[in-house]
Amino acid sequence: MTVALVGAEFGWGSSGKLSAVLSALRDRPTPPLRFVGMASGLGRPLLAEHAVDGWYDLPRDPGRSNARVEEFVRTQGVRAALVVLDGAAAKALSDAGVPTVFVDSLPFLWSEGDRASLPLDATVYCAQKSVELPPECRGVLADARGLRWVEAVIARPGASGPGRGARRTAGPYRRALISLGGLRAPGLADPDHYPRLVLPAALEALAAHGVEEVHIAGNLPADLVGGLVDASTAPVRTTAGPLGHGAFLERLDACDVLLASPGLTTLLEAGGLGVPTVCLPPQNLSQIFNGRYHSKALGARLRVLWPKNVLVEDEVLALRSKGEDHALERIYGAIGSAARGDDRQDVGRALRDGVLDALRGCADVAAWDALATTVGTRGAAQVADALLEVLGTAAPTS
């Protein structure tokens, strides 16, 4: 039976979730399954360890996408689809008659302005549990026909790891991992702006804190990192390069501290492994919520905020009622202006001090799995169950 896989072209979190669900399927007896991928160009490298029988692109012109999806479904014999956060793809697959499991890891984000973009008629709409559910999103989610609440969709810690929620020391930290995702998001004019502001500040703070070794991971432009690493202020051993999902988890498990632009999947995976985690300043709307939930759950100041002359989070959140795109426009514009501005050195110093404060705040955390414990960590298995249920009722495509 052929299953179509789709992840959002926004960051790497959706591909991490696809990887976690595929791993959960691999760990249980299932009928023979064949996987084919659609779109998801950004996240394909993260799924290289899984058996995906080819990837198929969609036209850039949205008006031609539905016809291409119908052709894809027919020629590949698609029986069901697993889609993470790509509402347009989920709608197109459903319109083509494919029973679709949609995974929404950001249900707290939506308002009435986002209703039209959500696949509320998906066969199963798996909404990931969150620390809080703002009132703006409750009415929207209530109209999801197949709504099913699931726990965090993340890879479970391996048996060789320290164990979920293990208490790790607050220092001294010697090995760090920096994770930057979301830099290829649609609507983001220049992916260099965020790392140009944040990366030198983070490296300087880590070195000042005593870190000797750091690896920079994420979807950064390949030619960018070298120009941002100052040997006089960065840790002695600084390396960079993208990591597949399995390799990322191994590196995460081996480090003493993680600095991350706060994608939710990364925060939950780090919490599941008990890794001390500092949230770098947000680069999109969801990361504002993620950073706040992370600090609240762990009861410590673990967030680095933008200086107020760059971005005021509450002003951004007020734009949500018009839809996510309006808030993103404000965030991207603010970061771009700061990266081009004459006071960018002052911004860098403020960010460096913010990272140092957050690193010191790690000493106040008793257990690093608090966020993961709040929402649970069995979501990958629950989504896998939903997909198998759908496959059991799916009619063969003609």
Rank of each mutant, 00 (worst) to 15 (best):
D121W: 03
G271I: 09
L259T: 08
I288K: 00
W12T: 11
A207N: 09
G77Q: 11
S117D: 13
V78G: 04
P307C: 06
A334R: 08
A8P: 01
G165K: 06
A367F: 06
L42I: 02
D325L: 14
A367M: 13
T238Y: 04
I331C: 07
L133H: 09
R292T: 05
F102A: 08
R303T: 15
Y293N: 09
G392A: 10
H193Y: 10
F72T: 10
G13W: 00
A96Q: 04
Q128I: 02
Q76M: 11
D57A: 15
V365F: 03
P29N: 08
L359E: 09
H245Q: 14
L25A: 06
D256L: 08
L133I: 10
A116S: 12
L268M: 11
L280K: 01
D57R: 08
R115D: 12
D343W: 14
A334L: 01
V98D: 02
D385V: 09
A96I: 06
P59K: 12
G139L: 12
K91W: 09
A166Y: 12
A155D: 11
P195E: 03
P99M: 01
D192Q: 13
A260S: 14
V73M: 02
L120C: 03
R168K: 12
G41Q: 13
V312R: 15
H326Q: 13
W368L: 13
A202N: 01
V310R: 03
V78P: 01
F10Y: 14
R292E: 13
R148C: 05
A327R: 07
R148K: 10
M1N: 11
A51W: 01
G272M: 05
V198H: 09
G54Q: 02
T266A: 05
A39D: 15
R138D: 01
L220D: 01
H209N: 09
G97V: 10
A166M: 11
S337F: 09
R60P: 10
E204H: 07
L188T: 03
D27Y: 03
N219F: 03
A51F: 04
T393Q: 15
V355W: 09
M1I: 04
L42F: 01
G263D: 04
A363R: 15
P242C: 00
A51I: 02
L177P: 10
L267K: 05
R360A: 15
